[in-house]
Design a protein around this nucleic acid. Structure first.
Lengths: 159, 159
DNA sequence: CTTATAACTATGATATTCATAGTTATTTGC
DNA sequence: GCAAATAACTATGAATATCATAGTTATAAG
């Protein structure tokens, strides 16, 4: 599997995080789990990873403790993958990647693919994480995400 | 170079971010740039990447617009690498990886490797990004980082 | 009893990464 | 003026990882 020589070499928390989840497929898989997708074939469809790539990454995420595999059906035997607390606490990283991507990876006049609103207050939250209605910085747990119609269509096409 | 087939396939900002910076070495290099390390050999020493790995990643970061290469000496000709605005705005991702790593990647009784304080107020900032003195959520620009003695020694050893 | 579904595994070609060594253009010490 | 040092890389061949494509297993549904 992927190289891991660095892991015990350093106490740097960024290096340690990077060695666990710092690859493209892992990030996409975790994104899907946050979107509520939990089954192998849907994960494969939405990430467009090959089945071995996906299987390998899921095994590592599980052995690292970010996800757990659970049977959702006994006959036939079928599994789903769910975030553990460790995995759920990765959300701020996903949010930060999303904000950066929305700000810096647009082509032409593209609009936001994901909109964030402040739970309760209901206001729109900007890419700087500040609520445009109440003016406060919004913590991850108070964010509600919704997909743009274009992004929703893109996902439906892959499903 | 690294695969990039997905880049135009999706409008997902997380996928696009992941395809630009979603690999271990890139994250470590960007970490170093945020720590003020800007020269090739120091980047190599602190990241422990091979020179080709580092050269390849720097080229991509430059062509992606996160960094720029600048001569700091004409004779002999020597270059350094600096974050652009696009690169500097990646800071929240680095911060989020740091918090997650400090929370979930410790072994035994290890202490924090990096401490954060709230500029001005001077209070200690927790892993949830909330200032322990004034109680407010602290935005990235108001954070001041300092290394633990252990982490500082580790870095000095590599230099 | 044929087809479908979900969750994978197998295989061989291609691409990336690693460890190690070497290059280039100066400058510094003697 | 010559040898060693410095910084920023490049070259090479072996080890690994990834890709596209196809196949397997166990059960259910028609």
């Amino acid at each position: 599997m992927t190289v891991r020589k660095d892991e015990t070499n350093t106490i740097c928390p960024i290096a340690r995080s990077a060695w666990r989840v710092g690859d493209r497929w892992t990030i996409l898989i975790v994104r899907e789990l946050f979107m509520g997708v939990s089954r192998f074939d849907e994960l494969q469809a939405q990430t467009e990873a090959t089945p071995q790539m996906l299987a390998a990454r899921l095994k590592r995420l599980e052995s690292d403790g970010l996800i757990e595999r659970r049977a959702y059906s006994e006959r036939p035997l079928r599994y789903e993958y769910l975030l553990t607390e460790m995995g759920r606490e990765f959300y701020p990283v996903i949010l930060a990647l999303r904000s950066w991507g929305e700000r810096w990876c647009k082509k032409g006049k593209e609009k936001l693919a994901v909109h964030m609103t402040h739970r309760g207050c209901g206001g729109e939250v900007g890419l700087d994480n500040v609520c445009k209605t109440c003016g406060s910085g919004v913590p991850p747990a108070s964010l509600a995400a919704s997909l743009s119609p274009q992004y929703a269509r893109e996902r439906a096409r892959r499903a």
